[in-house]
């Protein structure tokens, strides 16, 4: 049988896993994707028979952190199955070939899997100055993106840089970085923001495409609803303390250890949509809030430029303290006294 035509089940068998272990993984997967239990037999059938997905992974202005996150995703597929199943036809960091051969293999893969392959983009794109700030094999990144996007079955922008522009996009944005979706007008792009995004989410979205053959359901910002439908705040295990009005006062104080809410320390959970609080990181071990650090809001657009990392959400950005209050009251009082003086003068009489 042709190597690329292997299904997920074939891979499990070859690696010596039992069927039971295969079914457990699928159960986890369908639960993560939010499929109803009635769909379970279909999911099993699809993963037994459908060939593994072909993935072309492009990296532009990035740090490879998303890749790191992706290859460390172990809660759904076992480590040794993951990279064999998600067949990375082209990935600059992970693939063996280099230089001319690498570019050739990409071209080959695009032709071979045209219309079916999944294009994953990591990092923002820089079309400014004809793309001189990021070129691969003599081609500008924007050009490369257009080339690969043309025949893709599904385009996934992985990470905040690809989804929103991220850190390269931050002020003053010297390279003119933009989000992937900005350059691919008219094409549906699945944004999986986060810095980095949760690896399990990337794996689930890719696997989900093999099962249904369709992109997942997206919200208005192009994020899969299954993972970005709720805020961290909504699912946070410290939420009861927020509701009860109990807050940690400083990092790792007695209250923080007791699990009190980190809102006062600047937690952006209430306005950050992500699955950190449910799926968590490192195989469901923990997530930032659990380890005592407030949510950064890294999966929200422009998080880097908003600059209020450790101030509570509700306070005035730019600051309005006792000084400002006193200043405005003093000015107001002076104006009031002046007005009263004028009024008195104009009053005359007694």
């Amino acid at each position: 049988m042709f190597k690329n035509m292997e299904s997920l089940y074939d891979l499990y068998k070859n690696k010596g896993y039992s069927r039971r272990e295969f079914l457990r993984s699928i159960m986890l997967l369908s639960a993560t994707l939010g499929f109803p239990p009635s769909m379970f037999p279909d999911v099993v059938k699809a993963l037994e028979s459908r060939p593994k997905p072909a993935v072309i992974w492009l990296e532009f202005q990035d740090c490879a952190g998303c890749t790191e996150s992706f290859i460390k995703s172990t809660s759904i597929l076992p480590a040794d199955v993951l990279l064999d199943y998600i067949s990375l036809e082209y990935h600059e960091t992970l693939m063996a070939p280099s230089g001319f051969y690498a570019e050739e293999s990409k071209k080959e893969a695009i032709e071979k899997h045209r219309g079916r392959y999944i294009l994953v983009v990591e990092g923002s794109v820089s079309p400014k100055d004809r793309g001189v700030y990021c070129t691969i094999g003599g081609k500008s990144n924007a050009e490369l993106l257009q080339e690969a996007a043309e025949g893709a079955g599904l385009i996934i922008a992985v990470g905040s840089c690809a989804s929103w522009g991220g850190i390269p996009y931050a002020y003053p944005n010297p390279t003119g970085a933009v989000a992937v979706s900005k350059l691919l007008k008219g094409k549906e792009v699945v944004n999986i923001p986060g810095c980095p995004p949760i690896g399990d989410v990337i794996v689930s979205v890719i696997a989900g495409y093999t099962i249904t053959g369709k992109p997942p359901e997206l919200d208005s910002l192009g994020r899969p609803k299954a993972f970005y439908g709720q805020t961290i705040h909504d699912r946070c295990y410290r939420r009861p303390f927020y509701n009860a009005g109990r807050f940690a006062e400083s990092f790792d104080d007695e209250k923080a250890k007791k699990g009190y809410c980190l809102y006062k320390l600047g937690c952006k959970g209430p306005m950050t949509r992500n699955a950190c609080a449910t799926i968590r990181w490192n195989g469901g071990l923990s997530f930032p809030i659990q380890s005592g650090h407030p949510c950064f809001g890294c999966s929200e657009p422009d998080f880097w430029d908003r600059g209020f990392v450790y101030t509570p959400l509700s306070v005035v950005e730019g600051g309005f303290g006792p000084k400002e209050a006193l200043l405005s009251v003093t000015v107001g009082a002076a104006l009031g006294a002046g007005a009263a003086y004028l009024n008195k003068k104009l009053r005359g009489g007694k």
């Binding site: 405005s328 009251v329 003093t330 107001g332 009082a333 104006l335 009031g336 006294a337 009263a340 009024n343």
Partner: peptide, 8 residues
């Protein structure tokens, strides 16, 4: 508010 208060 300060203006209105002190004006009176």
């Amino acid at each position: 508010i300060a203006y209105r208060f002190f004006r009176v």
